[in-house]
Design a protein around this nucleic acid. Structure first.
Length: 354
DNA sequence: TAGACGTGGTA
DNA sequence: TTACCAAGTCT
């Protein structure tokens, strides 16, 4: 089974910016642990395509973990803006600092050592240990869960079935080439053993897949039913001053969009109850309605009424600051806030003639 | 332990 | 268009 999978990986592995190809790996070339760690954190709940430009940007800005550890947190948050799950960026910075100060700038080379660092959980510690250090750790992400659940036709629903699946992964993981094995399982899940319409005819494991034998691989993995997504309402205020700057402020460090930049908004409530009016604007002004934007988060849908005003204000409000519209691209603005600002100022994020 | 936590792509 | 999904972690 491992021989089939690794032979398939040797021929069909994906070429990725952070990856050392299996041929080079066989000649003893190891990937940079910093690159592997950075890519793994970015890839948490995120697609390869979305990660690639961010990975390149981060390596350009911070070529080593020491550079990242020394960077201002606001710069890291701004560079991460748009990638989502911003706790990852906060923990990324904390982890880099821990590696720099507590580990002499060198990543721990064991699963347990990695697991103790901020933002590194069961999956990432196993993945970095296997891929960067060739440790035979049991690497299980969503791809591997799908592959395993089909190989063994596991009827018990996720996430309860995780321990059972992890035992199978551990038992399958070879002492030889464990890093390639982990990447092979994930590539298989991403390209062959896909959620919909898996390409079983091309699968190197199709001779031992119980789900295929049952003629319904799409039935796996079985998952617990999800809950309905609630709707929340609020208002957002885009103030433009005479110098062409807009009023921004920083969100608190924890929770939703923690540490990111926003325009002033009302609280986001479950009902349109009158708490979304211009009385809640950061200051009195001739606020004009610009319509609404809708943004869907993981656990709720947000509908924001957007207002715009041109003000005579140039002084520094407290809290907050005036940021030139021409410099918005350098801010730690999450996507929902870019939507709000674009609703009020349609060309705000277009390139400026200089 | 189950909920919080983003975003963009695909069918 | 709605629904699901993508290399999870933290509390």
């Amino acid at each position: 089974m491992n021989r089939n999978l690794l032979a398939w990986y040797d021929r069909h592995h994906r070429e990725l910016p952070w990856r050392v190809s299996p041929g080079a790996s066989a000649r003893g070339l190891r990937p940079d642990p910093y690159h592997i760690w950075l890519s793994e954190v970015m890839l948490q709940q995120t697609t390869v395509q979305a990660v690639k430009p961010y990975f390149d940007k981060f390596l350009g800005l911070w070529p080593t973990v020491a550079d990242l550890a020394a960077a201002p947190t606001e710069d890291v948050m701004a560079a991460w803006a748009g990638l989502g799950y911003y706790a990852r960026a906060r923990n990324l910075k904390k982890c880099a600092e821990a590696v720099a100060t507590d580990h002499g700038g060198v990543f721990p080379d064991t699963e347990a050592g990695l697991r103790s660092l901020p933002g590194i959980g069961d999956y990432t510690s196993a993945a970095v240990a296997a891929i960067a250090f060739n440790r035979p750790s049991a690497v299980m992400d969503g791809n591997v869960e799908r592959v395993i659940s089909r190989l063994y036709a596991i009827d018990a629903p996720l996430p309860g079935s995780k321990p059972e699946m992890k035992r199978h992964v551990a038992e399958l993981t070879p002492q030889d080439r464990p890093g390639d094995f982990a990447q092979a399982m994930m590539d298989l899940g991403a390209t062959i053993c896909t959620p919909k319409r898996p390409a079983c005819a091309l699968c190197p494991l199709n001779d031992r897949c119980l789900a295929l034998a049952e003629h319904d691989p799409e039935r796996f993995p079985v998952k617990a039913a999800k809950k309905e997504k609630p709707v929340r309402f609020g208002a957002a205020f885009v103030a433009v001053n005479p110098e062409g700057a807009i009023l921004l402020r920083r969100r608190v460090e924890s929770g939703l969009l923690g540490g990111m930049t926003e325009v002033p908004t009302t609280a986001w409530t479950a009902r349109l109850d009158g708490g979304q009016t211009i009385e809640h604007a950061p200051f009195p002004a001739r606020w004009e309605s610009c319509g609404t934007i809708v943004h869907v988060f993981t656990h709720f849908e947000l509908r924001l009424s957007v207002f715009r005003a041109v003000t005579a204000e140039v002084g520094l409000p407290d809290p907050g600051w005036w940021e030139p519209v021409t410099n918005l691209h350098a801010q730690a603005l999450p996507t929902v806030m870019k939507k709000v600002i674009t609703q009020a100022i349609p060309r705000a994020f277009e390139p400026h003639p200089s």
